[in-house]
Design a protein around this nucleic acid. Structure first.
Lengths: 191, 191, 191, 191
DNA sequence: AATGAATGAGGGTTCATTCAT
DNA sequence: TATGAATGAACCCTCATTCAT
């Protein structure tokens, strides 16, 4: 008779939100962001066409939420103690964990690479992304400088490119890519 | 009616086809495949909305044609049927040329990275791609072995990932990426 | 359980109903009927989205309720069951009061003009409206006849049209319309 | 075999444009702008849902086109020789013709009054409308000043209100409204 | 009586594609 | 071959309305 309590509603909302995010991630990564319609997501989630809009303002916002979640997961492992300084151990930890994540969350990283190559979509995440990379780069530059590099900025760019390249190739063909051995190699080279 | 006319017609047809392909490549890479309409392509090419359908069955076929052409061009460029052995100088030359090509043909490579992240498209060239990369990898493995590497296969994978990663990041934001410095760094590291 | 509770309940119900009507009138007149959503009304009234449907069957019924209430109020205000004769002073008083009402109740009159232009809505109160205007016209005709007009019916129609036109223009852009000066002018002309 | 000539296309386009305008005017005036969907218009016109968008950029633009056409029709009769000065004869002509137009083009004027009372829709035509009324008012003010009025601005406002009021009442119930007699009365009063 | 999560029809708009010319 | 008017499915999104609680 009485309405649901706020707690009940919050549980329902959280579950639905998660459901929508999961389904959207799966479809976006399988078919690409543009080629996936909101209706498809709703259908695959077993909910009505309109419901996703109770949880996300727009398709764009849904994408951005997904993106932030994924990126934050990866960033958690970077500079573990968040003191702005990277030790060799923290670096090793980061590299190890990022690639664990890559394996555990292939869908997201597939989407990640897909987004970057769609100009109109990339614009949506550009700002978000720059914030992340700027913070990260500053710390990495310092890391390479301390290790005695004369060109820490370039080393940072190269390191990032390598991480991206490995991720990319793994994502394209996970079965054929010798990820573990490659990761070991990277750790040896950089830590 | 006369044979010459037919030949001329074929030339004209070939020119139109090329025109459409070029314009499409430019727009697809600039705005993304989904965000580019067939009408836009026609308009930019100065032809009618219906004409592209005389040359390509659908938008998707146009895209695939572009992809195949681009991949073939790239493979021809890296013609490996020489002597199968890479010297340090040849390696340097290779790295230099890859990135020259990247800069000269940004449009294609942008599209290329986009298509790689779309499973259904990648499947279409998977086999050819494997043949190509296998040939290339064989030569690189030999190169690293000669340089004294104990894990030449892994070094090859890492090298390829790095090349891909650099290309990827450059393509995403060409203005911000210090390509020349990075290339120098790679050459120093690998040659 | 006790009778008092029921009475109190009725009072509460009546208050809620009135609240919804007031909020709806305000929003409908501010933003237009179509552009106002039921959710907005509920939110502005501080109640849940579903509650208005306990009081009104549909958005349209809510609109019609508003319209009928407003028209009845206006008709009561212009209660003509007095002596049926208008003096110049009474005329002046009437004109003054009409425009006072217009200013005091802009929301309603805006909506009123809107509804008049929607055939299906106007049909709902056509009959009552005719009764009302006929009564009023009779008195005005007598007024103009006494003032010596040879076409008192036409004068009445023109007078009514003028009153309507002024109201209309004032409602459309209240800030720009010089209502007071116009009213003075009308009084001078007609009293 | 060969494509239609430009002339043929222009004829087709002009006919379709007119068709869409006519159907839209009819439906907008019958049901109101907001309550009429583009699909309805297309269906009533016997064309596909998408075609109106080849002729008008949006529903708004369609409305504006309609509005401009209607207003321009009326303005043609105002200040016949377009010299910025109104004679008594021109005034008479204007009044007569405007009301002829009102009768001939009831749909438009119904829409006209409907638009004014929908805030979000009125915004679309506000600018357009101000341009018209400003020009007209300037000329009318001069007209009343010449006739010896001490308050030509107010007279102009009152005149406009009267014209609007008459139009409004006629539009609401054309059968009952004694338009001809009223027009005579107005002419006598103002010319 | 009251809540708000959920539905799904329908809105404006776009665009790949067709086809009469 | 070439044109562009026309189609209609599909897209993103809104919102009146329902109903379990």
């Amino acid at each position: 008779m009485s309405p649901r309590t706020e707690i009940q509603n919050n549980i329902i909302k959280e579950e639905k939100r998660t459901l929508i995010l999961n389904v959207a991630l799966e479809l976006f990564s399988q078919k690409g962001y543009s080629a996936t319609s909101m209706s498809e997501i709703a259908k695959a989630a077993g909910i009505s066409k309109g419901l996703p809009y109770s949880y996300f303002e727009s398709k764009e916002e849904l994408l951005l939420s997904l993106f932030k979640i994924g990126i934050n997961q990866a960033m958690e492992f970077f500079d573990l103690d968040k003191n702005g300084i990277l030790t060799a151990d923290e670096m090793k930890h980061y590299i190890t964990e990022v690639f664990k994540l890559l394996q555990a969350n292939r869908s997201f990283w597939k989407l990640y690479f897909n987004l970057f190559t769609q100009p109109n979509v990339y614009d949506l995440i550009k700002t978000e992304m720059h914030d992340f990379t700027n913070d990260m780069s500053a710390i990495l530059i310092e890391y390479f400088r301390k290790k005695g590099s004369l060109t820490p900025e370039i080393d940072t760019v190269v390191f990032n490119a390598l991480m991206d390249g490995i991720s990319f190739q793994y994502i394209i063909e996970p079965e054929l890519f010798p990820l573990d051995a490659v990761v070991d190699n990277v750790i040896k080279q950089y830590c």
